[in-house]
Amino acid sequence: MEPLRKLRSRTVVLAKDHVDTDQIIPARFLKCTDKKGLGKALFSDWRYDEAGAPRPDFVLNRPEARGASILVAGDNFGCGSSREHAPWALVDAGFRAVLSTSIADIFKNNALKNGLLPVVVEPAAHARLLAAPGAELAIDLADLSLTLPGGGVAHFPLDAFARYCLMNGVDELGYILAEAEAISAFERARGER
């Protein structure tokens, strides 16, 4: 996992509430057995028409979306399934942060495991972000801040442990495995081993 300390990028605005994981990546793309290359399936049914040609009016297909790594979306982003293919697809397509007023629990967990920063902001800040597609933002994990279009700074919450993992590019597995003795003791205390 690439460490993520600061991020500077233009935004892509997808102003829809309740964007579910079936939209982020439809289930027919989940038959893979690795995680590579899922970016091309990102938002597939919104991005491409029935013949597979890009829909020019979809935000991700517009020229100004190219190279953007911050997605600003509507309320309750990522609701639905537990498929980690959703953050895999977003990261593969170049995204490193998703901003919304709320982000579904399982999606948020999965995003954090893959170096994709879930940013939850207040409605007022969110409204400014929605109104300024393509705005250049700077996100800093050191003080959990982001610059807002037209000036000013907003702060966002992030679990201390999740922040440590993101900033250092480490996953949780090493930490859990380091607790092997405590886990064995727990099992023994339950009379299992």
């Binding site: 537990s82 399982i106 893959n114 442990f161 859990i176 886990i183």
Partner: peptide
């Protein structure tokens, strides 16, 4: 509760997850 594939791996390896109390 449902978990993602990374966590599936953690549980396979350690039978544990890191969780904040909901």
């Amino acid at each position: 509760f449902g978990i993602g594939t990374s966590e599936v791996g953690y549980v396979l390896a350690a039978q544990c997850l890191l969780q904040r109390r909901p």
